[in-house]
Design a binder for these strands. Structure first.
Lengths: 258, 258
DNA sequence: CACGTTGTTCCTTTCACCGGAACGACGGCT
DNA sequence: AGCCGTCGTTCCGGTGAAAGGAACAACGTG
């Protein structure tokens, strides 16, 4: 255990010493079984007590650390729990989805995507690319609106009704959607809810088509899985052929996560 | 979700802006469902891209963040998982122990302690104080050697034999223990292993007495629970009366943690 | 082609922050 | 009682670490 061992000096690639120190303090709190003193942090990291104190105060202000009750020693705080839970939860969803999406990619020979809802829209968080030279690819992490694209629509279709109404209203405003477009969107969402999947053709990208279905955890749609490709291969009829395979995957993933 | 919402400006009490920024980047990674871009971090926190990049590089150098495969976006890294697990594990042991130690305190009217092993000794990590005006209290987080005190002895008694031999040898050297003291210590430890608890009187503090027993998880002693008080009340006979209550608590805690 | 955005690197300037010092509190020892 | 050492916390001055603007190559879109 590391209380009595010096933390090895580690450089940084492109970071700063000050930021390194914050990370090191967090890791020290992690390595210590009980409350850590300001003087202990200072000694371990070879910094002044006042520096150690300041870093700890910043961590406390963000709930990443806290002072142990009845002590002036510091411990990891509630936000550290949330951080770990998030890091684990991200791994859990993507780890569970990866083999299934890879298999779906292999069977369809088209690009498969995992997409998650964020405020105001969605984000693609994983992709498995088609082996074809001409294929559809997306930029992971980039924000996308709800209304254009299969995965956006499927997430919206299976969202809470109140949330859905609000999202449609906001998106109408931000993207200047007319009455006809809104009505068409609502019909699409109704249709999606009946079938459990949605197809799109040329909406986000005029050269692309897609089919998407939701992943549920305890009845809540937490992600979408989609298959997409260039319009030349991804005809509406092709999308309908792919749908059962897709639903099979989303059902297995949903079961695995519950 | 917070990608589209500005992170609220939060001051710090005694910290620094630079350290706050590191914490804020971590929390932003936590709040984002997918990879976060340098430019996204910069926009959210209202800092320059180069600053955001540097903080992220520092976090990556400590495995608190990583770049998503096939993307230049950043995610929480493996050390964040460990951090959360540690924060949770600390909560788990102390959360499980708290009601039992409180109950033991209430029944004995003496101070109860939770103590954990660290390199070279032990650390008190939680205490529930006696309601008496004259009572025993300890400083949480302060390092203590093995050989002086009931909880140190109980942890040593139930440690791996190899570890125990090494610890005794080291402690003999550091604290200049003579042959007689070592022999007496070994007899104490043998006695402790036979009975499952250990009593002490006046060893760490000439005015105090204590009785301690180990907490096991999967056959490994991971902590000690002890009851301690002033010698005037905490006679050896009194310690023997407390021992069954203490063993009851450690057994329930061990069961709860397994 | 032009334009916009991106992540990453470089360089100048400056002020945020490091670290030493001070201080009150506490505990141990004589 | 006094003295000493250690502690966490706060203060303050000097300076160099770091913020931030700029540059740049890469990429995507029209």
């Amino acid at each position: 255990m590391s209380i009595q061992e010096k933390v090895p000096l580690r450089g940084t690639q492109g970071g700063t010493d000050a930021a390194d120190r914050v990370a090191d303090v967090l890791l020290l709190l992690m390595d210590s079984p009980g409350p850590v003193r300001v003087s202990g942090v200072a000694a371990e990291l070879g910094i002044a007590k006042s520096v150690a104190h300041r870093v700890l105060r910043s961590l406390v202000s963000r709930n990443l650390a806290e002072q142990a009750p009845g002590s002036s020693g510091y411990l990891l705080g509630p936000a550290a729990v949330a951080l770990g839970a998030k890091a684990m939860s991200r791994s859990k969803l993507e780890n569970a989805a990866a083999p299934l999406l890879r298999e779906l990619r292999d069977r369809t020979q088209e690009t498969t995507l995992l997409t998650r809802p964020v405020a105001g829209g969605r984000v693609h968080v994983a992709q498995f690319e088609s082996p074809h030279h001409v294929r559809m690819t997306v930029e992971l992490g980039a924000f996308r609106p709800w209304h254009a694209g299969a995965s956006g629509k499927i997430l919206l279709a299976f969202a809470e009704p109140e949330f859905r109404e609000r999202a449609i209203a906001q998106e109408a405003e931000v993207y200047d959607l007319g009455e006809e477009a809104i009505a068409a969107l609502k019909r699409d969402l109704e249709h999606a809810r009946e079938r459990g999947y949605v197809t799109s053709s040329g909406e986000r990208n005029p050269d692309a088509g897609a089919v998407a279905a939701p992943v549920f955890v305890r009845g809540v749609a937490i992600a979408a899985v989609s298959v997409c490709g260039p319009r030349s291969r991804f005809t509406p009829a092709h999308a309908e052929r792919i749908a059962p395979m897709l639903l099979n995957v989303t059902q297995r993933l949903s079961a695995r996560l519950s």
